[in-house]
Simulated scan of single mutants.
Amino acid sequence: MLRMTRAELHRLVWSKPMTEIAKLHGVRDQHVAQACDAHDIARPRAGHWQRVEHGKAVEAAALDNKKHSPEAIIIIEPAVGRPGGLQKGEDDDAAGQCAA
């Protein structure tokens, strides 16, 4: 589980790629991205980490505190089960059925 303030999450997403954050905290990178979007935390754009890797200058976006406090707590639950909502051992046929 990932539990931190908006300000801490903002610093974290600008310090390392989402995939690394996800691995370190046992969550999915998509969930980190969704939490950022839901709490108005700007994320690095595509190519940001490649520019960093090649020593190019990059700027982190400032944390916008108009709608949410920087001290608001954000909780991202760990990734469990398989994508699509089915847990191991559940009937896979139910996922493939369509309404007629």
Rank of each mutant, 00 (worst) to 15 (best):
L2Q: 03
R3L: 14
M4I: 03
M4Q: 10
T5I: 07
T5E: 03
R6Y: 00
A7G: 02
E8Y: 01
E8T: 10
L9P: 03
W14D: 02
W14I: 03
P17C: 09
M18D: 04
T19A: 10
E20S: 14
I21D: 05
A22E: 07
K23E: 14
K23Y: 06
K23H: 10
K23S: 12
K23L: 12
K23P: 00
K23C: 05
H25L: 03
H25Q: 04
H25N: 15
G26F: 04
G26T: 03
R28C: 12
A33K: 11
A35L: 01
A35E: 01
A35H: 00
D37M: 06
D37N: 07
H39L: 01
H39N: 14
H39M: 07
I41R: 00
A42P: 03
A42M: 02
A42W: 00
R43I: 10
R43K: 15
R43L: 12
P44S: 04
P44T: 05
R45W: 03
G47H: 07
G47N: 08
W49S: 06
Q50L: 15
V52M: 07
E53I: 04
H54L: 14
K56R: 15
A57M: 13
V58S: 05
V58C: 09
A60G: 08
A62L: 10
L63G: 00
D64A: 08
D64H: 03
N65S: 15
N65D: 15
N65V: 15
K67V: 09
H68K: 14
H68G: 02
S69R: 11
P70H: 03
I73L: 15
I75G: 08
I76C: 02
R82K: 08
R82T: 12
G85R: 12
G85T: 09
G85H: 09
G85L: 08
L86A: 13
L86M: 11
K88E: 12
G89L: 08
E90A: 09
D93P: 00
D93L: 13
D93R: 13
A94G: 03
G96T: 10
G96R: 12
G96P: 00
Q97R: 15
C98F: 14
A99F: 10
A99D: 06
